[in-house]
């Protein structure tokens, strides 16, 4: 995976554009992952104000 610098979504290695937000600002240098499966039920997602399911990088450089 690579990570979108704008929305932090993990994107496939071969992607040049983030499928979630459309940004082309994509990094290979990222750390940590948060997989949000059910944002309505997840207190973690609520605390981080994430309201859509997805795989996110915790830190993107």
């Amino acid at each position: 995976f690579k990570a979108c610098r704008k929305c932090k979504s993990l994107v496939p290695r071969e992607a040049t554009r983030c499928p979630v937000c459309g940004s082309t600002d994509i990094s290979e240098d990222w750390e940590g992952t948060l997989v949000v499966i059910n944002p309505e039920m997840s207190l973690i997602a609520k605390r981080l104000e994430i309201n859509r399911p997805g795989r996110y990088a915790i830190k993107v450089r």
Partner: peptide, 16 residues
Amino acid sequence: VRDENIPIYSIIVPSQ
């Protein structure tokens, strides 16, 4: 979780 409808809401892989 998706296939079997298990109530897990998020998964965290901490880098630290």
